[in-house]
């Protein structure tokens, strides 16, 4: 047996350059986080603003969605071809937050759920770079759970603002979403844990609806144009989507 000289220098160079790239990508996804923080602070106003002012809030979010798009395309440029799964953990957290903001904004504008494909349109996550950047179904579902958490808070605050029709609509919407989640066979992972938490949000909203309907405050909900989450028609939904896409 001869003594073999061990030489891993080329492998070391490979892993070191990967490490450097990971840092660049993480640095760049901080930009996405910044954009999300701005969005979050604007969207937070929804809890303290009469529902009539919601279009103003949506208008205010639009430049920040443009910022999200540019941050994402910066990340796409960094990821080497065909290596999506190698790097996706580096931005996943920020992407979930951003998608939550997109879905919430769209819901505020339309009363509808923005589909995963439409989210990709808003954030310009394109199929042509699917080997480098995608929105995974798990990430999208995480964002929906965040939105449900936020809507239960909104239900409380809309009542405080004297808007009694919103909780009824939120309750219906959140129940639809929950029914959807119940179709999934979730494994014992973080999504499962967060899904298990949704029921407290539903319960919270149901209690609010109970409180206000017991006192007869809920009246003619469907006829009202005002409030949050009023379901609008197809045409209007397209308009809002185009707004979010920056068109």
């Amino acid at each position: 047996m001869t003594t073999s000289s061990v030489d891993f220098s080329s492998l070391l160079a490979e892993l070191e350059s990967e490490r450097a790239l990971a840092e660049t990508i993480r640095e760049s996804s901080k930009e996405l986080d910044k954009a999300y923080r701005s969005l979050a602070s604007i969207l937070n106003r929804v809890h303290s603003t009469p529902s009539s002012q919601i279009p103003t809030i949506i208008q205010a979010t639009l430049p920040h969605f443009a910022h999200c798009r540019s941050s994402i395309s910066a990340i796409v440029q960094l990821v080497p071809p065909h290596q999506y799964y190698k790097w996706c953990d580096d931005w996943s957290f920020h992407l979930k937050n951003t998608v939550f903001a997109v879905c919430l904004t769209y819901f505020l504008g339309t009363g509808f759920l923005l589909s995963k494909e439409e989210v990709c349109l808003v954030l310009s996550i394109d199929r042509s770079h699917a080997d480098r950047f995608q929105l995974s179904t798990e990430e999208y579902l995480h964002s929906l759970v965040s939105m449900i958490n936020e809507l239960s808070r909104l239900a409380v605050n809309s009542v405080t603002l004297g808007d009694f029709s919103t909780p009824v609509r939120l309750s219906r919407f959140v129940k639809d979403l929950h029914a959807g989640f119940q179709l999934l066979n979730l494994k014992n992972d973080s999504l499962r844990k967060r899904f298990d938490g949704i029921k407290y949000d539903i319960k919270k909203i149901e209690e609010i609806v109970y409180d206000i309907s017991l006192r007869g405050l809920v009246k003619d909900v469907e006829g009202q144009e005002a409030g949050v989450g009023v379901e609008v028609g197809e045409e209007k939904r397209q308009e809002v989507l185009a707004l979010l896409m920056g068109r």
């Binding site: 009363g111 509808f112 759920l113 589909s115 995963k116 179904t137 798990e138 579902l141 219906r172 919407f173 639809d176 979403l177 029914a179 959807g180 989640f181 179709l183 999934l184 066979n185 979730l186 379901e231 609008v232 028609g233």
Partner: peptide, 21 residues
């Protein structure tokens, strides 16, 4: 609109179920 929304959500999640499974 509401019914349309409910059934859309259901369809979408059925797709997710198959994918996750």
């Amino acid at each position: 609109n509401t019914e349309q929304r409910s059934s859309r959500i259901k369809n979408v999640f059925q797709g997710f179920r198959d994918e996750l499974d």
